[in-house]
């Protein structure tokens, strides 16, 4: 059954997606399925049944005139629609991207926690009243951690550059490969939801250590001094989880977007159809960084003022602004 499905989907992959072509595909599938089922009922082996169904399928050229796809069928034989992107490469790409997501997130993590060094050593210095050596160590640790973070980011950037032509050249994935990517993505979505939630919760809860440690300061001042370090540590872990998981999810979407949007094969990505088209490139760029920017503004405002009870107002406001922009600057039709 799977073989027949693959065969049919591959035949239709590069055709434009129109209601007539969908209907043709579904009707042909109905007939093939019926024939296959009956062959099996008549005691044929699965291989025999698949062979018969495919042999008796015919040729799409017969439908060319009725469906108005003649030019596509000709085109296909003249110029290749894109380089094939086989399943092994897909697996290699996904594995590579997953590793890269980890490295990038780790780099970001080190950059964020680099400020913990000075805070922690500063607290020790304050506590032992020995500013000299401890203060210097703190200053050094900031640069060491930041250097490690940036180093990892550079490494991961260079490491992934071998895949950079994915966005530039035109590749296509066949039906079974697309199906595989899609299934893998669906499987990962649960993990993604969990990691994202934990990441966001950690970022929000990061204000708790300073609050609690404030209370401990009665016992020992050192708690109060280094409470900021814990805040950044929690934010660092939270951001690590968010970045890693989002990047991994993004790699599936990148692959699913390889097939041309207006063909049957490209219709596989539901969120691709939903992605709105904007009137100009500039708007599209602004919109793509809208939510990260809002998040940054929220965090900056919150951490600068610690007025958490009123900074949340950014989110509903941003939501309204986002839908206003989306609806007014969206490309019509």
């Amino acid at each position: 059954m799977e073989t027949i499905r693959n065969y049919l989907e591959t035949m239709f992959m590069n055709l434009p997606s129109s209601p007539e072509i969908y209907r043709a595909k579904n009707e042909l599938w109905q007939m093939m399925e019926d024939k296959y089922t009956e062959l099996l009922e008549n005691g044929k082996s699965e291989n025999e049944a698949v062979g018969t169904v495919i042999a008796e399928f015919g040729n799409l050229d017969e439908l060319a005139e009725d469906l108005g796809i003649a030019q596509f069928l000709q085109q296909e034989s003249k110029v290749p629609q894109g380089k094939p992107f086989p399943l092994e490469t897909v697996k290699e790409y996904l594995a590579d991207k997953a590793k890269n997501a980890f490295y990038t997130a780790l780099g970001v993590f080190f950059c964020i926690i680099s400020v913990c060094g000075p805070i922690f050593f500063g607290a020790l210095a304050e506590y032992f009243d020995a500013d000299g050596i401890l203060g210097a160590t703190g200053g050094c640790s900031l640069f060491v951690l930041a250097a490690v973070g940036v180093g990892i980011l550079v490494y991961s950037g260079v490491r992934i550059s071998k895949w950079k032509n994915i966005g530039q050249e035109h590749y296509v994935t066949d039906f079974s490969t697309t199906e595989y990517i899609h299934q893998e993505m669906e499987k990962y979505k649960g993990t993604h939801a969990l990691l994202l939630t934990v990441g966001i919760v950690l970022c929000i809860l990061s204000v708790i250590p300073p609050m609690i440690m404030d209370e401990f300061s009665a016992y020992s001042e050192i708690w109060d001094y280094c409470s900021g370090a814990f805040l950044f540590l929690m934010v660092g872990i939270g951001v690590f989880l968010i970045v890693m998981s989002s990047m991994k999810l993004d790699s599936y979407n990148t692959l699913l977007r390889l097939n041309q949007k207006d063909t049957i094969g490209g219709n596989y990505v539901p969120n691709q159809q939903n992605a709105p088209q904007y009137i100009s490139e500039g708007v599209a760029v602004v919109m793509s960084v809208f939510w990260p920017t809002v998040t940054c503004l929220y965090l900056i405002w919150s951490f600068l003022t610690f007025d958490w009870w009123k900074t949340w107002i950014i989110w509903p406001l941003a939501g309204i602004i986002h839908s206003v922009i989306k609806n007014t600057l969206k490309k019509q039709g």
Partner: peptide, 17 residues
């Protein structure tokens, strides 16, 4: 005579039109 699926569907669409 075994009619091909594509032939059959092509006849359907043409006759329906």
């Amino acid at each position: 005579y075994i009619i091909k699926e594509t032939t059959l569907y092509s006849a359907f669409t043409r006759m329906e039109k």
